[in-house]
Write a protein that binds this DNA or RNA. Structure first.
Lengths: 223, 223
DNA sequence: TCATCATTTAAACGTTTGTTTGAAACCAAC
DNA sequence: GTTGGTTTCAAACAAACGTTTAAATGATGA
């Protein structure tokens, strides 16, 4: 338990952010739980904003490297042939689910990340966009190659839906309590469940209505 | 534009909440945009917490009544027979997507709602659980009846995933910017896209690994 | 016209926020 | 043992927060 102040602060911040949200977590809560002085955050990180970025960067960089690594492995194996969609899904979402199952750090962070995609704060949006730029580009290319019959815009939406399902899968029991008691203790089962759901959605028949000249009836109810 | 102070505050709060989040939105921002006095919030609602609840209740009650209404209509038509899964999905998620397409109020709110499911704040969780209790019970029952071959726990997860996809579908362009430029101006197309994705995921083949006696290999990488 | 109620207003309240300060404590190198 | 650089510490800072107050204003019915 002899970790240095910097990491103790990162750990406490991560854990408190996921419990109370970014805004509602104060520096005093963080430093108290980390058994550090209040000024330590500004000394080690500069500001609360910089601390938030550090909390995310610490694990997000590694996560996306893993994703690209998994994709590289599949592509090397395929020797120029398009990958199977299942492989690409596995590389992107599977890696995330497995990280979320890792009690030594990943679990807490992934819950935080899941609910941060929809975070409206500006500096977080731009920060995430930067961190994701490379991995998104790689996976878009792989998907387009693997599914040449699916219109690109259509696929982007499905990718987006899949991110939503992933986010909720990871947030897990918190939001699930809305649906009733449920067991989210088995990460392998969760992995299998999410994968089959995602593949099912990804490979669903294309909707017919797409690209219809959306003529909206102007008629309003008489008032 | 002669609306009363109370509704002007509700409208401004709704719009600001979705832009900056609940915590980061201050009463001074709200009253400034609503052209009301700072004290007006506490006068009309009692507290900021009560205002938040009012913002949600105003549209959420109606939304869930619509959902139950749609389900009732389908069930009356089916005369005791189980519904088709597509109908239940339509009643729950279709109603939400259509509300999200309504520029006169619904759109802003649904974006707010989508990112609030994962909100960690306690009083919001309990509030949402209350508001959703009835509609969740009705739809769970309908789904269980329509899909007797799907284990209930399995289905609850899929329902959960579907909520995630819906949430992201509604948050729309905000988070989608991560994936690149995309057009979310056509609600009918979005509706069709989400529905086919959801049905695809819901009806995907069951994963085999479920309920395996999760024996986790203790072996760690040599270090 | 007056009295009564509801609403709006400006000002102030006590807290809490993130941040800064300057001195104390620590620790290795010489 | 003294120096020099890093880290910790208690205390204070101004700013912003949600909330409260008491007076001013508006509208309604007698």
């Amino acid at each position: 338990m002899e970790t240095d102040t910097r990491t103790r602060i990162l750990d406490s911040a991560e854990s408190l952010f996921v419990r109370h949200g970014l805004d509602a977590t104060t520096l005093r809560m963080i430093t108290a739980e980390a058994q550090a002085n209040l000024a330590a955050v500004n000394y080690h990180f500069g500001s609360k904003e910089a601390l938030i970025e550090a909390v995310f960067r610490r694990r997000l960089t590694w996560l996306n490297e893993q994703r690209i690594g998994a994709l590289n492995a599949f592509e090397a194996e395929a020797k120029g042939q398009p990958l199977k969609p299942r492989q690409i899904v596995e590389a992107f979402f599977g890696v995330a689910i497995r990280m979320a199952a890792d009690k030594n750090g990943g679990q807490t962070f992934m819950r935080l990340l899941g609910r941060t995609y929809t975070e409206p704060t500006d500096f977080i949006r731009t920060f995430l966009a930067d961190e994701y730029a490379e991995v998104i580009a790689r996976f878009k290319a792989a998907f387009f190659k693997a599914l040449p019959d699916v219109p690109q815009e259509e696929f982007l939406w499905r990718f987006h839906f899949m991110m939503g399902a992933l986010s909720y899968a990871i947030s897990g029991a918190d939001a699930l309590r809305l649906l009733g008691p449920i067991d989210d203790s088995d990460p392998e089962a969760l992995y299998a469940r999410l994968m089959s759901f995602l593949i099912g959605g990804l490979r669903a028949p294309l909707p017919e209505v797409i690209a219809k000249p959306a003529r909206k009836p102007r008629a309003k109810r008489a008032a």
